[in-house]
């Protein structure tokens, strides 16, 4: 399980990006681990763990022609790869309100101080151009316990004076 890379590709979305990139990797003798691929705005973003015997430069030469053809920017890092530790989130935080700059920084700043380790965060902007609203959902680990996060949120709510809704709830995994 050695020789892992984190490969990131970003570019204008179009049909066939996943198929063509993964085909190039497969033909180059690479194996994929965990991956996150999604459209953000009009861009398509891919991050994947790639396991290969190739060195960094050879791996780039395997992907580059396809990436260029598709207009994707490429970023590659060698990493300490491990497939198996999957930390399970034990807390969920949902935030929404009228959109303005600084919500993410403010909320995650307080939560980080209270021990939140974020595992998954997604945000979106909805509403109309004149009245946009902001939505954020976070899953993570409360490394200092739920109470610390609860206190941090109380403090945040005072600072934000009711302009943003923030809800914290425990997440449980049912081992069945």
């Amino acid at each position: 399980m050695k020789n892992w890379f984190m490969l990131a590709l970003v570019g204008q979305d179009r049909v066939g990006i996943v198929a063509q990139i993964t085909d190039a990797l497969y033909r180059g003798g690479c194996n994929l681990g965990e991956a996150s691929m999604l459209r953000l705005g009009t861009s398509f973003t891919m991050m994947m763990m790639v396991n290969t015997q190739l060195d960094e430069n050879t791996l780039i030469s395997v992907i580059q022609p396809t990436a260029e053809k598709l207009g994707l920017h490429l970023h590659l890092d060698q990493i300490e790869g491990e497939l198996h530790p999957h930390p399970e989130p034990d807390v969920k935080i949902v935030v929404h309100g009228a959109d303005r700059a600084g919500i993410v920084a403010q909320v995650t700043g307080e939560l980080a101080n209270a021990g939140l380790n974020i595992l998954d965060l997604e945000t979106g902007v909805g509403g109309s151009d004149k009245k946009p609203f902001y939505f954020m959902q976070i899953e993570g680990n409360a490394t200092q316990g739920m109470e610390a996060l609860q206190l941090a949120l109380e403090k945040l709510k005072e600072t934000l004076q009711g302009n943003i809704d923030i809800n914290l709830s425990p997440l449980e995994t049912f081992d069945l």
């Binding site: 198996h84 399970e88 989130p89 449980e172 995994t173 049912f174 081992d175 069945l176």
Partner: peptide, 10 residues
């Protein structure tokens, strides 16, 4: 809700 299963480890 999140589920785990003895037949699907990790």
């Amino acid at each position: 809700a999140r589920e785990g299963c003895m037949s699907v480890p990790d």
